[in-house]
């Protein structure tokens, strides 16, 4: 049982108005893993998560979550899953404690008072328990939401862009908490836009226009992309970009502060083009590790837009 995957779904498909928002997605998450679910806006991350926890019915595909059939056992899956929605969806006109009490009663937790007290203390919400949830800042709302979805000690945590609109310190603390929970055996599937958060995951799955286009550990994904990066320092940045653009082997140019990241798949063509462009400008070029962000931008550029009519898509 312990070796069986926590999430094991195949061919998940969801169509809205004739458009496949999620298109044959396979996903496997093992116990204790933190898996990052990445992809641009509208790529189908939220829809996939909702199908796993029974909030949406897949049009095709099947699979298990915690060993339970996602199509038939949604009620039992809900008992063992903590789902944190993208938008804050607790009651703004209830206090923190009242919200937690409500959740504790729904899960029939006993002894309720003590469990709520412990949850409040653990997440540092004890002093604010009488405050209305609607008056909390983004960071505190996120803490409350996390507290509410881990209170019933789920085996699986589904987090949908949990740190959107939260300041860096609160994000850091949030991730520390996630890692602590994972160390205790909790499995986490977290969707995000942030590269630094992706790098905090054990494994990432990249989805674009409803299709999984990359998966593995961060180094694996970078290696699989086959991209090479040359960092150009110094010189006239804007002028260099103009010169570099369109040269053979150069596929992406992205400024990072005063540096330029020049990315391409053909290592030799890339190096030759950069040498040619910087000759006489005083700029220096050095090969460097390709960043996850460069890989993602490339993945986004490559994938087919599913807003196009269905019959025109490959």
């Amino acid at each position: 049982m312990s070796d069986a995957p926590i999430i094991d779904v195949h061919g998940l498909t969801k169509t809205f108005n004739g458009r496949a928002v999620v298109d044959h997605v396979d996903l496997e998450v093992k116990r204790g893993e933190i898996v990052g679910f990445l992809g641009p806006n509208g790529s189908g991350k939220t829809t996939t998560i909702r199908m796993i926890c029974g909030l949406l019915k897949p049009d095709a595909g099947d699979g298990t979550c915690l060993g339970l059939d996602i199509l038939k056992d949604a009620d039992r899956i809900k008992l063992e899953v903590g789902y944190m929605t993208q938008r804050f969806s607790f009651y703004e006109d209830l206090t923190i404690r009242e919200n937690l009490d409500f959740v504790a009663r729904l899960y029939e937790l006993k002894p309720r008072g003590r469990i709520v007290d412990e949850t409040l203390a653990r997440l540092g919400l004890a002093n604010r328990q009488g405050q209305l949830a609607g008056t909390l800042s983004g960071g505190w709302k996120q803490r409350l939401a996390l507290a509410a979805c881990v209170m019933h000690q789920p085996q699986l945590l589904l987090l949908d862009e949990p740190t959107a609109g939260v300041d860096p310190k609160a994000r850091r603390e949030f991730w520390d908490e996630i890692h602590e929970l994972a160390a205790e055996g909790l499995t986490v599937l977290v969707s995000t836009h942030y590269m630094d958060e992706a790098e905090r995951c054990h494994r990432i799955v990249y989805i674009s226009y409803g299709k999984v286009v990359a998966r593995g550990t961060v180094p694996e994904v970078i290696a699989a992309s086959g991209l090479h990066t040359i960092v150009v320092k110094g010189g006239d940045g804007a002028g260099l970009v103009r010169k570099l653009k369109g040269l053979p082997g150069i596929e992406q140019i992205a400024p990072f502060g005063n540096d330029l990241h020049v990315v391409g798949t053909d290592e030799r063509a890339l190096a030759a083009s950069v040498e040619r462009a910087i000759a006489g400008t005083g700029a220096t070029a050095m090969p460097d590790a390709t960043s996850l962000e460069d890989v993602f931008i490339r993945l986004m550029d490559q994938s087919t837009d599913n807003f196009a009519p269905a019959e025109q898509r490959p």
């Binding site: 039992r76 009651y91 009663r105």
Partner: peptide
Amino acid sequence: MKLHRFSVSRIVAVMLKEFIQ
């Protein structure tokens, strides 16, 4: 965790929440 077919606790949860709101 066991899922009861009918839970008074859950009904009470929704009731209290509605009263407060």
